[in-house]
Nucleic acid binder design. Structure first.
Length: 701
DNA sequence: ATGACCAATTGA
DNA sequence: CAATTGGTCATG
C-alpha cells in the first residue's frame, strides 16, 4: 500500500456490503479511497442493548496472541453472537475467524473496542466445557488454543446447519443386562451399577482374551445413558468405530448415538457434531477427535486400546486421546474407562496414583476364555538345526501348529512391518542396548566411532548388557519379515489372505484359511482363530522407541485375544526367546504385572509417565537460543542436542536439524509446560526461527 | 502475521 | 540530512 496515511482502526469495520461486493474488481488504491470516503460519513455504531461486549478467541497461530480479545457487538448481531458462536473480526489489520467465549456488560480494555465484523451464525459450536478443555490441552502440550480448536471443532457446513437435528427417541435401558456382561470381572458389576446410578466411577479395564469388548463398552455406555447422561467412546481407527457403533445400535437401537470419524466427509461429520452440540443425541463413538465432542451432561468417557499410536494426534500440539479424556473426566466430573487387552504404563499410573480402580479378569476367567499360549525358540542356531524351519524360515513347532490349526478353522499370522528403525541390541540375549546415562537407545552414527546415545549423544565404548553381562552389540536386521506369498507356498492347499497397509480386512469367515496380517490390521474371525502365530517377536522388541516393549506386548495381546479359547482348541504360538520377560507376561496373560514393572522401569529411567518429557527440534542455532531463553524448573535434565536425520526422501529444507530432549519429574510437569509456552510466546513475538515443541511425544526413537 | 513506531545505520 | 533498515511493541 502506497498510502502515506493509515486508516483509523475502526474505519473498515463499518464497510457495508457495497464495498465488499466490488472488492475483487477494484484496484487497491481506488478501494482505499472509497473506504476513506465512507469512513467520513460513517454512521455511529449501534451496540447491543444487553452485554454489548464479546470476549473473542481469535484464530491466529501465534503463541503470544493466545488469549481472548474484547469486541463490541453491534445490535443487529446480538442475537447471533452468542457464547460459542463463530464470528469474524478485524485483528491486526486483517479479517480473522474467532469464537465468542462469552458476552459481558463492559470491557476492562482501556482503548476503543472494534465491532465484530460478522456473526457467522448463531450455532454455539464451542461449548464452555470444550473451551475450558482446549485451554487445558493447549497448556499441557505447550501449544495454542487455536491449534487445539482446529482439532475440536469441525469445519462449518452451512447447508447442514440449516437442517434440524433429529432428537433421539425415548429408550429404556436394561441395566441388568449391562451388569451381566461386566459381572465376570473383579470390580465390573460395581462399575456399571455406579454408572447407572448417576455416579462417576473411574476405572482401568484389562479385557480378558476373547472378550467382545465393543459389546461390553456399549453396555457400560447404556448404563450411563439410563441415568440420563451422555457418553464418549474413543477408539483407534474407523474399523473399531464401526464395531462399537454396531454394538451400541444393538443395545440402544437406532438414533441414540452418532459416529465421529474424519473419513465420513465434512457434511456428515458436521451433522453428527451438531446432533451432539444441540443435545439431540448424547452418545458419540469416534476416533481421536471425538475426545473433544460436545456431548451434553457427560457421564462417561471411554478410550479403548490407549496404547495405539493412532490415539496420539498427528497435528500440533499432538495431544493424546487418553490424556484429553482423563482431563475431561476431571473437569466435567464424569466417569472414565481406560480399556484394552494390554495396559499402558500411563494407565497403570492412573491405578497406582489412586485416580482409577482396576477392573481385571480373575485367573479363572483368563483360563476359561484364553487360548493355550506357547513360546517356540527362534535363535539362529535353532533355526539352522531344524530342516523344516530352514525351508519355511519358521520353527518346526510353529509350522506344525499352523498345519493343525488349518484343519480346525482360520489361522492368523502376525508379522512385523518392514523397516523398523532398529537400535543396537545385545548379541547374546537380544535385549535392546540402552544408554547408561539416560536410558536412550544406542546407535552407530559413524564408521569409526563407538556407539552413541540417540537422545543425549553420550558415547558408550565399553557397553555391558545389564541383563546377561554380554559385551557384544549387534544391529538387528531391518525388515526381516517374511511375506505372505512365502508362507502361502508352504501351505499350498489353503487360501492365503493378507491384511495390511492399504488393504485391511475387517473380518474373515469361520473356515480354514491362512490370514497374514501386520499388527493392528488383524481381521476379526467370526468364531475365533483356531491358531494365532506371532512371528519375529525379537524384531519388534528391537525397535528404538521408548515404548517398544509395551507396544510389542500390546500388539501381541491384541492378536492373541482373537484366538478361540483353549477348550475349543485355540492356540497361540509365539516365535521368540522364551526367557524374555515380556513374552512371559504374554504367556501368563498378565497385562497388570507387566504394566506395573514397566512403570517401575520408566520411573528409574526417568521416562514418561514418571517424568514429563519434551522434545525441541529445529536448527542448531535456534535450539541453542531456545535453551538459553528457557526458564527450566529446578530438577530439569537437558539431553542433547543431537543431530537428527531428515525424513527419508525429503532433504532438510532449512539446513541440518537437531533435537533436544528436556525432562522433569512428573511433579514439575506443569512448570515445564508453562516454561515452554512462555518460550514459544517470546519466540513467536520476536519472529525467531521456529522450534517445534512436542510434550510427551508418543514415540521417541 | 501485520503494521506502527523509533532508533540506528547508510549514502549522496 | 534524508532514506533505509532493523528491532520492538501491540494487535480489542
Amino acid at each position: 500500500m502506497t498510502e502515506p496515511e493509515h486508516p483509523a482502526p475502526e474505519q473498515p469495520d463499518l464497510m457495508p456490503e457495497l464495498g465488499r461486493a466490488r472488492e475483487t474488481a477494484r484496484a487497491a488504491k481506488q478501494r482505499s479511497e472509497q473506504q476513506r470516503a465512507k469512513a467520513a460519513a460513517k454512521p455511529p455504531l449501534d451496540p447491543a442493548a444487553v452485554d454489548p461486549v464479546a470476549e473473542v478467541l481469535v484464530d491466529v497461530p501465534l503463541a503470544h496472541l493466545d488469549r481472548p480479545f474484547d469486541y463490541l457487538v453491534p445490535a443487529k448481531m446480538s442475537g447471533d453472537a452468542v457464547p460459542g458462536a463463530r464470528v469474524k473480526v478485524r485483528f491486526a489489520g486483517q479479517d480473522v475467524d474467532g469464537f465468542v467465549l462469552r458476552r459481558k456488560a463492559a470491557s476492562s480494555h482501556e482503548g476503543r473496542l472494534a465491532p465484530l465484523r460478522r456473526a457467522v451464525s448463531s450455532e454455539a459450536v464451542l461449548s464452555a466445557e470444550v473451551a475450558a478443555l482446549s485451554a487445558f490441552v493447549a497448556a499441557r502440550y505447550a501449544g495454542t488454543r487455536s491449534d487445539v480448536l482446529r482439532l475440536a471443532v469441525p469445519t462449518r457446513h452451512a447447508t447442514v446447519e440449516k437442517e434440524p437435528s433429529t432428537p433421539a427417541p425415548p429408550r429404556h435401558v436394561d441395566v441388568e443386562a449391562a451388569e451381566k456382561v461386566w459381572s465376570p470381572y473383579t470390580g465390573g458389576t460395581a462399575f456399571v451399577r455406579h454408572l447407572a446410578e448417576g455416579n462417576r466411577p473411574r476405572a482401568v479395564w484389562s479385557a480378558s482374551p476373547g472378550e467382545d469388548w465393543p459389546a461390553a463398552i456399549a453396555q457400560a455406555a447404556a448404563a450411563t445413558y439410563s441415568s440420563g447422561r451422555g457418553v464418549i467412546v474413543c477408539v483407534p481407527d474407523h474399523r473399531d468405530v464401526a464395531r462399537v457403533s454396531a454394538a451400541l445400535r444393538a443395545v440402544l437401537g437406532e438414533g441414540h448415538h452418532v459416529e465421529l470419524t474424519a473419513d465420513k466427509g465434512p457434511s456428515e461429520r458436521y451433522r453428527s457434531f451438531l446432533a451432539l452440540s444441540r443435545g439431540a443425541v448424547k452418545v458419540a463413538v469416534g476416533t481421536r477427535a471425538a475426545a473433544f465432542a460436545p456431548v451434553h451432561d457427560l457421564g462417561l468417557v471411554v478410550v479403548w486400546d490407549d496404547g495405539d499410536d493412532l490415539l496420539a494426534e498427528l497435528h500440533a500440539p499432538y495431544p493424546h486421546t487418553r490424556e484429553v479424556l482423563v482431563q475431561r473426566a476431571y473437569q466435567e466430573s464424569c466417569g472414565a474407562l481406560v480399556a484394552g487387552f494390554a495396559r499402558t504404563a500411563e494407565a497403570q499410573l492412573l491405578v497406582q496414583s489412586g485416580w482409577a480402580r482396576q477392573i481385571v479378569a480373575p485367573r479363572d476367567l483368563v483360563r476359561e476364555r484364553g487360548a493355550l499360549v506357547s513360546i517356540t525358540g527362534a535363535t539362529d542356531r535353532e533355526l539352522e538345526r531344524d530342516p523344516m524351519a530352514r525351508q519355511a524360515r519358521l520353527p518346526g513347532s510353529a509350522f506344525e501348529a499352523i498345519r493343525a490349526g488349518l484343519h480346525q478353522g482360520p489361522v492368523l499370522l502376525q508379522t512385523p512391518r518392514h523397516g523398523y528403525a532398529a537400535s543396537l541390541a545385545c548379541d547374546r540375549c537380544r535385549g535392546p542396548a540402552r544408554c547408561r546415562a539416560c536410558a536412550g537407545p544406542l546407535r552407530v552414527n559413524a564408521a569409526h566411532r563407538p556407539p552413541s546415545c540417540a537422545w543425549c549423544g553420550q558415547e558408550e565404548p565399553t557397553w555391558v548388557c545389564p541383563t546377561c553381562g554380554g559385551r557384544g552389540l549387534r544391529a538387528p536386521v531391518r525388515g526381516d519379515a517374511r511375506t505372505a506369498e512365502e508362507l502361502g507356498r508352504s501351505f499350498p492347499s489353503f487360501g492365503v489372505r493378507t491384511s495390511s497397509g492399504e488393504r485391511v480386512l475387517d473380518e474373515v469367515p469361520d473356515k480354514p484359511a491362512l490370514v497374514v496380517a501386520t499388527p493392528g490390521a488383524e481381521p476379526v474371525a467370526a468364531g475365533g482363530y483356531s491358531c494365532v502365530v506371532l512371528l519375529d517377536t525379537w524384531l519388534m522388541l528391537a525397535r528404538t522407541d521408548l515404548r517398544a516393549t509395551e507396544e510389542s506386548l500390546r500388539r501381541w495381546m491384541n492378536a492373541a485375544a482373537l484366538a478361540r479359547p483353549a477348550s475349543a482348541g485355540g492356540r497361540v504360538v509365539v516365535v521368540g526367546e522364551s526367557t524374555e520377560p515380556v513374552l512371559q507376561a504374554l504367556l501368563r496373560w498378565d497385562p497388570e504385572g507387566f504394566a506395573s514393572r514397566e512403570l517401575g522401569e520408566r520411573e528409574s529411567a526417568h521416562l514418561p509417565p514418571a517424568s514429563r518429557l519434551a522434545t525441541l527440534s529445529g536448527s542448531d542455532q535456534a535450539l541453542t537460543a531456545a535453551l538459553a531463553m528457557l526458564e527450566l524448573p529446578p530438577a530439569a535434565e537437558v539431553l542433547g542436542p543431537v543431530p537428527v536425520d531428515a525424513p527419508p526422501g525429503r532433504p532438510d529444507p532449512d539446513g541440518p536439524q537437531a533435537r533436544l530432549v528436556v525432562r522433569v519429574p512428573r511433579s514439575e510437569g506443569a512448570a515445564l509446560s508453562r516454561a515452554l509456552v512462555e518460550l514459544q510466546g517470546v519466540r513467536a513475538a520476536k519472529k525467531l526461527d521456529p522450534v517445534r515443541v512436542q510434550v510427551d511425544p508418543v514415540t521417541l526413537g
